[in-house]
């Protein structure tokens, strides 16, 4: 078994989650604060769409935007950045596909926070930015953490969009899911088997962690409401 796909997968998922977490939380906050109901639900739908569309469709859009003959792809090409069929493309694919999970978890977590805390914060003069970072985000902690784990695990297992925009270049863009695909299509079931075991194990550990965070978070919340 070549260990490279495992390392590439872990590297891709780790870098991707940094972007996914920040962008997903930020977008959730923006939508959470929106007052216009129509715009809010339109934006919400667009941000959720990658969750239900086949990843190949997301990959198609990404190719459409970043392809070397497209305006943005060409612009990036001039300054020496080539996204498609390079390692950054695996990150891009993982971010786009995992973003809805992070976004929805974060938005759900914000909605769970009792608005009275934000009201109290406003009446003692705290700015909106201050309220977000000191009150809203900390009180959404368990929800943000579980969203992060979910998004990381999804990034780790990303296949369709990655194949479309990053290709399947051994040692560069061949992540574990792609390696499994290549092994099976090459008739090497033994090799596929070992990658499958590794992927299942890693995912198992993270989803276990996710359950721990969710349980732990809700226990804490329950304990505090008992005191009231």
């Amino acid at each position: 078994m070549v260990i490279e796909p495992i390392l590439i997968s872990l590297k891709t998922a780790s870098v991707a989650i940094l972007f996914t977490f920040v962008i997903g939380t930020f977008l959730a906050y923006v939508v959470f604060k929106m007052k216009n109901g129509v715009i809010k639900s339109v934006v919400d739908t667009i941000l959720t769409l990658p969750l239900v569309l086949p990843p190949t469709v997301a990959g198609f859009f990404l190719l459409y935007i970043f392809g070397v003959y497209r305006p943005l792809g060409r612009l990036l090409g001039y300054i020496g950045i080539k996204i498609v069929f390079s390692w950054p493309a695996t990150v891009l694919a993982a971010v786009v596909i995992a973003l809805p999970l992070m976004y929805r978890s974060a938005k759900g977590a914000f909605q769970q926070v009792d608005p009275i805390y934000m009201q109290a914060a406003r009446t003692i003069g705290m700015s909106n930015v201050h309220i977000a970072f000191r009150i809203l985000f900390p009180l959404s902690g368990p929800g943000l953490a579980s969203g992060g784990i979910l998004a990381f695990s999804r990034g780790l297992g990303e296949f369709g969009a990655t194949a479309m925009i990053a290709g399947n270049i051994a040692g560069v863009t061949r992540t574990m899911p792609l390696a499994i695909y290549s092994a099976v299509s090459g008739g090497n079931m033994e090799l596929a088997y070992s990658y499958v075991v590794v992927l299942v194990l890693i995912s198992f550990i993270f989803v276990w962690g996710l359950n721990y965070v969710t349980e732990h978070g809700s226990n804490k919340r329950r304990a505090s409401s008992d005191q009231d």
Binding site: D114, I116, Y117, Q119, A120, A121, R122, T123, I124, G125, M126, S127, R134, I135, P138, L139, G141, S224, D228
Partner: peptide, 30 residues
């Protein structure tokens, strides 16, 4: 004017103390 500029103190029914902060931090914020 937003609440931040009204200079009005509000005691909430269940006090709305920030549960993730100590007594000290709750007061310090204000």
């Amino acid at each position: 004017l937003p609440p931040q500029q009204r200079n009005v103190g509000y005691l909430f029914q269940n006090y709305a103390l920030f549960p993730h902060m100590t007594v000290w931090a709750n007061i310090a914020l204000a």
